[in-house]
């Protein structure tokens, strides 16, 4: 048995940190079930605020917009990102600049990309809306899909591809029958990751959405609502979103891990 010095001190550090991390979120979740909606008085358990949520047109429209943005940008990013990953991996050697361009969207702070895109769209006189949000989201989604698929390709046994070609399959057939099925879990996992990132993304969407009311996504709707203070409805919405994103990410991780191990 190893001696554990400072056991109490360690425990109190951990207790403090976990309280700091979880009390705000827990209070939020708790209040979303509070009948009266007041933060300081508990007046009984209720799902009233969740029901209210589903009657709020602004929130429903914003949710639909978000789903459109996330779905379309994920589909584009998954296709392009998978192609990119395969293309980069079958090459003997990649230039450093190509590698940096692929990695850049994951490293550049969101605000930088958001400002750059906003100024480009403004300068080119492009009317901004859902379509500009979608093409902008593809930029970072692409990078994430590509990195997940590439990780899977690192352990890929290329001799199966050679075998398929030797047996007379065309490169398209090989891709369709051999490469893609093997990569599928990574592609799905990368796609789910992209979908979640896109659902949650606020800054780039906010900067590239233009002024129109029709292009408000859910995070933008939340942003404008919470600027005016606390309402029990936002508590309920926040709770739902938190669970949804944690769930999606765990599924994405599980699909990918299940195959690796």
């Amino acid at each position: 048995m190893v001696k554990q010095p400072y056991f109490k001190r360690r425990l109190s550090v951990l207790a403090f940190v976990f309280a700091f991390l979880y009390v705000p979120i827990s209070v939020l979740i708790g209040l979303s079930f509070n009948e009266g909606g007041l933060p300081t008085v508990w007046s009984g358990f209720s799902l009233k605020w969740y029901e209210r949520l589903f009657q709020n047109d602004a929130i429903i429209n914003a949710t639909i917009n978000t789903l459109i943005v996330a779905t379309v940008s994920t589909v584009i990013a998954t296709i392009l990102g998978t192609m990119l990953a395969i293309g980069v991996e079958i090459r003997r050697k990649n230039g450093r600049w190509l590698e940096s361009i692929i990695f850049a969207p994951m490293i550049i702070p969101d605000i930088v990309l958001a400002i750059a895109l906003l100024s480009m769209f403004s300068m080119l006189d492009i009317t901004m809306g859902l379509d500009t949000i979608i093409v902008s989201h593809v930029v970072f989604n692409l990078a994430f899909v590509c990195s997940v698929v590439r990780a899977r390709l690192k352990g890929f046994d290329w001799s199966v591809v050679d075998a398929s070609t030797d047996l007379g399959a065309s490169s398209i057939t090989t891709l369709r029958r051999i490469t893609l099925p093997i990569l599928m879990p990574a592609i799905i996992s990368g796609g789910l990751l992209a979908f979640t990132l896109s659902l949650d993304e606020f800054i780039i969407a906010f900067f590239t959405s233009g002024a129109g009311k029709d292009s408000i996504t859910l995070p933008m709707q939340i942003f404008s609502m919470i600027r005016f203070g606390v309402t029990p409805e936002i508590n309920a919405l926040a709770t739902l979103i938190m669970f949804a994103s944690v769930l999606a990410l765990s599924i994405s991780q599980r699909i990918n891990r299940g195959v690796v191990s």
Partner: peptide, 14 residues
Amino acid sequence: WSNYLIRTYAWIVL
């Protein structure tokens, strides 16, 4: 892993 806006909003609530 949860939304940045929501984590920030939690402090407005508190």
